[in-house]
Nucleic acid binder design. Structure first.
Length: 818
RNA sequence: GCGGCUGUGGCGGAAUAGGCAGACGCGCUGGCUUCAGGUGCCAGUCCGGGUUCCCGGGUGGGGGUUCAAGUCCCUUCAGCCGCACCA
């Protein structure tokens, strides 16, 4: 019989589906395991070969956990709101909901073809009103607690999407989605106060098992820095407050710089108003990206007629405006210490301002001496002579005592711009009332349905398509009953994905986002694998929402995910990132129809280190197909007849079938126990490639010495998480009873993983000269006598004298010969 | 500029805790089987030299520690990914 993967895979997939073979059980007494992967955006292109990599990995883990006796929740869903669908809908004149339904169907079919052990009954769709009701509900809670607010802010405006973007969505001054230039605009936007959680988002990273690069990237993004705020008196009468991480360098502050947007500038009447206005206007036109692009060349204008007073020296110093100071960080103004900050140094050189050394060690004629954390203070009054650390403490205390400043922690993290001027998103459940301001809809009116519109194209004015539907926007104020307008912006795509994993615990619930009981049992997620590109987006956002939900008593834990790992991309065959425009996209449908799902699964896992990028190779897939063919040949002829396994053996050396726990033969006992140990450990460490290599080696062994039924049984058990269809089919053919997927994960016996005889390397002077076989655990003396009695080695030693021997047990003998 | 990662055969990649570099797979070479084969099986395959066997070299480059270095230290080059005037 041939390995007919098409019919075999179809057979098992439909059986799994009809039997709901992988349903997670709420209310089970078993220990739970929650395995999560990032749900996909169902684009019109369908899956590409990058998707199966993380999915297969978690499927293997989920299947192994089931075999280990866990009640496993391994769900799938669709993050279906978003721009590409809307853009596609506009272009093809099809309603986004129709497009979404079609895409979800296609994705589901493709995923089912790969044999994933998802609990399909728990599938979620973020565009389903039953789902987004709770997204809106969370927004109302955020609003209620003052964490959602509307503000007029400069925003990133995508010139093509005609839509506001979050900072996280702007890449190199371009829209992350469409690549169009992003410019700056002032708009009134809904904002979420993620900054309120900045400290906890940093601190709690210590309590979770995330791979280090994820933690580092989140820490850098949040950007916590400790310093002080310091007040400078000015001749205008106002005090100018700055933030600095180096209060110890206060004696070196020889001028000040304010951002062009600083509020005090509107109040002051400097001697050169025209010049200042011109600079402000020029700065306002630039996008953030343009401003940073100009970074190399410092520009600025002095505010004539107004000076600041350095609080420690008492000296009057000039004040400038310059766009190298950002309005959005700290206080929007700085004290410039050109001796110890390169940016200030460049500015000071350009404007011929004094540069004072306050920490010894550098050459401030050449450049700012920045790397001075351990130096000694000079030219610094009462802190002269102190090490930097002590100087910091002393001056911070002095500032506080004199009421001139205080210790202060700042974050780079900004509040989250939460509104989008687009149609295909969750409507924000707020109305604008002339009398009452922004009024939340009562919970009973949720979900606020996204209305059907004739035309969902964006407008040049930058308003949401919903704004052109007066019959929808006109409503009554829930508070005073007067006329009011609905909010017409929608939520960003990140909204639905910020809490979807909670919904899986209790998908059908219509009285809560999920029951507390279900959340208590299933959350937190035990293992979450996803892309690095989401580290400062989805992963951070969802941690923020989760902490908020924890604070209001909805979820039982402060962190949503116990463990986070990340996979590398699969590149196209040309080593470039897969993309339609490059034409190097590998379509899973083709691979599945040519080689089958099991081979596809094996190959995406075998392709290379899971955590690194790896280029696709259509040739190399064959190796995995060959493995399955070889296993098929072994097990398909090894029928249920007890004696059959042995009768075909021609070696005659094979021992009788063992009756031990794992039922393996004496001939393969060591290899099998080694394989059980290695495959199990490799799965836990995401080393799927070497796990599969181990299976290949075992199969090679089985070809050299025919396996028994017991040997085959273990092989199929180990294979089952990787290639579940063929494993089940052969399991059935062999008549082992039950299913491969429901077998306990095999145990290994450490003592049986050890070879009786080991090859010992022999070195002379550290160079390999040969090997000998020796019994495991041989003592130093025994080993040495074996080595020196070796014909070749004794010849090489010749008349020399062994002056030293280094013996590493079970590994090598190194002889130093004089 | 800052932070992180990676450099190993023709290719993808292996190498617990410093201990035989190149597991496993692709490709390639040879043989056998079936020959309808683009199937299967067996053997070989880091490089160079003499060819049972042996000798020398080898993990981006240079230096060091060590009996022993892909692995540790210093230095240098190349590539990738984040962040980027955050005071």
């Amino acid at each position: 019989m041939k390995y007919e993967f098409q019919s075999i895979e179809k057979k098992w997939q439909s059986r799994w589906e009809s039997e709901k073979a992988f349903a997670a059980v709420n209310g089970s007494s078993l220990p739970k395991f929650y395995a999560l992967i990032e749900f996909p955006y169902p684009s019109g292109d369908g899956l590409h070969m990058g998707h199966p990599r993380p999915y297969t990995a978690m499927d293997i883990i989920a299947r192994k956990r089931r075999m280990q006796g866990y009640n496993v929740l391994f769900p799938m869903g669709f993050d279906a709101f978003g721009l590409p669908t809307e853009n596609y809908a506009i272009k093809n004149k099809i309603h986004p909901s129709v497009v979404t339904r079609r895409n979800i169907k296609r994705f589901s079919d493709q995923l089912k073809m790969l044999g994933y052990s998802f609990d399909w009954d728990r599938c979620v769709d973020t565009t389903d009103p039953k789902y987004y009701k709770w997204t809106q509900w969370i927004f109302l809670k955020l609003f209620e607690k003052g964490l959602a607010y509307k503000a007029l802010i400069p925003v990133n405006w995508c010139t093509s999407c005609k839509c506001v973007l979050a900072n996280e969505e702007v890449v190199d001054g371009e829209c992350e989605r469409c690549g169009a230039p992003v410019v700056r605009r002032e708009k009134s936007q809904w904002m979420l106060k993620i900054t309120e959680y900045a400290q906890r988002l940093v601190d709690d990273l210590d309590s979770v098992d995330f791979i280090e690069r994820v933690k580092t990237q989140q820490r850098n993004w949040i950007g916590r820095s400790v310093g002080a705020e310091v007040d400078f008196a000015t001749t205008a009468g106002d005090t100018l407050r700055v933030f600095t991480t180096r209060p110890d360098t206060l004696f070196g502050a020889t001028y000040m710089v304010m951002s062009p947007e600083h509020a005090l500038l509107q109040k002051w009447s400097p001697g050169n108003p025209g010049e200042i206005k011109a600079y402000q206007d020029a700065a306002a036109k630039k996008s953030d990206f343009e401003r940073t692009e100009m970074a190399k060349d410092k520009s600025g204008v002095e505010i004539k007629g107004i000076r600041a007073v350095n609080p420690v020296t008492g000296g009057e110093i000039p004040i400038y405006i310059s766009d190298y100071v950002l309005a959005s960080y700290g206080t929007g103004a700085i004290m410039a210490v050109p001796g110890h900050d390169q940016r200030d140094w460049e500015f000071a050189k350009k404007f011929a301002l004094p540069i004072v050394e306050v920490v010894k060690g550098g050459d401030i004629e050449k450049e700012a001496f920045e790397d001075c954390d351990t130096g000694i203070m000079v030219n610094s009054g009462f802190i002269t002579g102190l090490p930097v650390e002590d100087a910091k403490k002393k001056i911070t205390k002095w500032l506080a005592d004199e009421k001139l400043g205080e210790e202060k922690v700042n974050f780079k993290l900004r509040d989250w711009v939460f509104s989008r001027q687009r149609y295909w998103g969750e409507p924000i459940p707020i109305v604008h009332c002339e009398k009452c301001g922004y009024v939340p809809l009562p919970e009973s009116e949720l979900p606020l349905l996204l209305p059907d519109v004739e035309n969902y194209e964006t407008t040049e004015t930058g308003e949401s398509p919903l704004a052109s539907m007066p019959e929808w926007t006109a409503t009554v104020c829930p508070k005073c009953g007067g006329p009011a307008q609905r909010e017409t912006d929608t939520m960003p795509q990140w909204a639905g994905s910020s809490w979807y994993f909670l919904r899986y615990a209790d998908t059908g619930n219509d009285t809560a986002l999920a029951s507390r009981e279900a959340l208590d049992y299933w959350t937190p997620v035990d293992w979450y694998n996803g892309g690095m590109e989401h580290t400062t987006l989805h992963l951070l956002y969802s941690r923020f929402w989760h902490k908020f939900l924890y604070d209001i008593g909805v979820v039982p834990t402060p962190e949503p995910y116990m463990k986070r790992t990340s996979h590398g991309f699969i590149l196209g065959e040309d080593g470039q990132k897969m993309s339609k425009s490059r034409g190097n996209v590998i379509n899973p449908d083709e691979i599945i129809s040519e080689y089958g799902a099991d081979t596809s699964r094996l190959y995406v896992m075998f392709i290379g280190d899971f955590e690194k990028t790896a280029p696709w190779s259509s040739k190399a897939v064959k190796g995995c197909k060959r493995l399955l063919d070889r296993i098929w040949n072994l097990a398909e002829t090894n029928t249920a007849d007890d004696s059959a396994s042995g009768s075909s053996s021609s070696t005659g050396s094979r021992a009788a079938e063992s009756t031990g726990a794992c039922e393996c033969s004496a001939a393969h006992e060591t290899a099998i126990h080694k394989a059980i140990k290695k495959v199990g450990a490799d799965i836990e460490n995401l080393k799927f490639n070497t796990a599969i290599a181990t299976l290949m080696s075992l199969v090679n062994d089985f070809y050299a010495t025919p396996p028994t039924r017991g040997d085959i049984k273990v092989l199929l058990t180990l294979l089952s998480p990787f290639a579940p269809h063929i494993a089940e089919e052969l399991w059935e053919i062999q008549g082992f009873g039950g299913s491969a997927a429901s077998q306990p994960w095999p145990d290994y016996d450490e003592s049986k993983t050890l070879d009786a005889m080991l090859e010992i390397a022999i070195q002379i002077g550290g160079k390999l000269k040969g090997t000998v076989m020796a019994p495991i655990g041989s003592g130093d003396d025994d080993l040495l006598s074996i080595v020196v009695s070796d014909e070749k080695i004794s010849r090489l030693i010749g008349g020399g004298k062994i002056v030293r021997t280094i013996i590493v047990k079970n590994k090598l003998v190194n002889l130093i010969v004089s």
